[in-house]
Design a protein around this nucleic acid. Structure first.
Length: 137
DNA sequence: GCCAACGTTGGC
DNA sequence: GCCAACGTTGGC
């Protein structure tokens, strides 16, 4: 039973296009304790939405966790972790933040309740709903 | 331990 | 560019 997540990235810093080009990419730079807990809870094979924050404000793709939490090499202290993710697929239709906010079925999403959290959990129901909105079978 | 000041995130 | 949310820092 794999769990589901949502990862935020500003496209100016690291975009979905770059993720696709790189294949496997370490998800580094998380410096928030709750986000760190979520990184540590990720398991091989878990899937995560790739969300463009700030510019775009939409879910654009899906990545798969291919390496579980290990020390973030970009952290000065050893206190932070990262995971490796691989691009899996692009959503046929990006799901915008506006669409998420307008949908009562998604009102409980951590994305909406904690706007500054860069790594957040997604429930199975939310995942299925978002996939449908994104044009996946 | 409280809280004001400050910095960062991220939507608008 | 503005500002709300919220985490961190530092004086007391």
């Amino acid at each position: 039973m794999s769990r589901h997540w949502l990862l935020k990235s500003e496209p100016e810093a690291f975009s979905w296009t770059e993720q696709q080009a790189r294949g496997v990419e370490p998800w580094t730079g998380v410096r928030n304790h709750l986000a760190k807990q979520h990184l540590r809870a990720m398991r091989l094979g878990d899937l995560a939405f790739f969300y463009h924050s700030n510019t775009g404000r939409e879910i654009v793709g899906i990545v798969e966790v291919v390496r579980e939490a290990y020390p973030d090499p970009t952290a000065e202290s050893g206190d932070w972790v990262c995971v490796d993710v691989r691009a899996r697929q692009t959503l046929p239709r990006p799901v915008t933040l506006a669409a998420i906010k307008a949908d009562p079925a998604l009102a409980g999403m951590a994305l909406l309740r904690q706007s500054r959290l860069s790594v957040s959990p997604v429930t199975a129901a939310e995942w299925a709903h978002l996939c449908a909105l994104g044009g996946l079978p």
